[in-house]
Design a protein around this nucleic acid. Sequence first.
RNA 1: CCAACGGGAGCCGGACGGUUAGGCAAAGGUCUGUAAAACCUUCGUAAGCAGGUUCAACUCCUGCCCGUUGGA
Length: 309
Amino acid sequence: MSKILIISGPTATGKTSLAIKLAKKYNGQIISADSRQIYRGLDIGTGKDHPKNQTIHLIDIINPNQAFSSAEYRQLALEQINQIHSQGKLPIIVGGTGLYIDSLINPRHTFSIKPNFILRFILNHLSTPTLQSILKFLDSKTYNSLNHSDSLNPHRLIRKIEISLSLKNLKSEKTKLDNYLHISLTAPNDYLFPRIDQRIDQRLQAGLLSEIKSLLTQYNWSHPGLNTLAYKEFKPYFDKVSFVKGRSDEAERDFVLKSCIQRWRFDEHAYARRQKTWFKKIPGINFIDISKSDFNQQIDKLVANFLSS
RNA sequence: CCAACGGGAGCCGGACGGUUAGGCAAAGGUCUGUAAAACCUUCGUAAGCAGGUUCAACUCCUGCCCGUUGGA
């Protein structure tokens, strides 16, 4: 049975560099599980900072104005895994998008129901209580099974309605990864957050603002790719820049910029928290605390054991 | 020294003589074709100090302290 390595964890824990290291050591090929690095042109803000000659599959595969989904990801990733296995190499899946990783190890039947964008467009204009009534009418069983959080979540309600309106029979997905080692990097918040903040400063210095500026010549804020951390927070700033030309407003612009950066910082913290929540509940995961000094040895031991078994 | 304005949870902050402001942060959570999305819960019962008015004061009055701005 062919083996697979999975590396997950919140942002700023060094997943990619670990993956590169392991790929070199064990003749591996890296597959990204990152819902934002799939976009071309979002480089600095999504942290595509690996060496240029290092191949990472499933990054830069679509444009920022295109939609993407976990089901599409699943399909592409499975293809990649097969291909890498056929070359006799070790696939290393690395990323922070819990849903994408989950789509590989825990697929579900609703993947056979495709999105209906016309329906979504219409439903998007309705209030949450209305969506609730619609779902209750169509499928009261599903509606009643929703927890408090999901029953107030328009995105999730719309998807449920979409499923209940679909006439297709649900067919279960058979392909499911099983012979894998799942390592999840983690760290306490008071260790992780300063690292995040530091990386934010680096990305600003690396020219994030000019990257956004050039993206905006082709794309706009309503495109799915721009609804991304490190990008979406700067909308107020760029709105200001384009509407106000007077130099007298420089101080004000600077103030707006500062508040955008602050917003971004907070959003990154919240994101890291959500990621940790996600990985916490995945069974069979091996957590490695990167704030501990011996974490590299722990990883080496885990991987060596797994590959020799 | 004088004047004006202000003083509230870790921060911002609207209102207001009595009922949860709200937002941010922080922490926890939900999760299956938007997931770096979207959504939920918790948490903070707080008012510079000393008095007074009042059944009731963050809110009104007096004094003091502190801060900002303006003036000498």
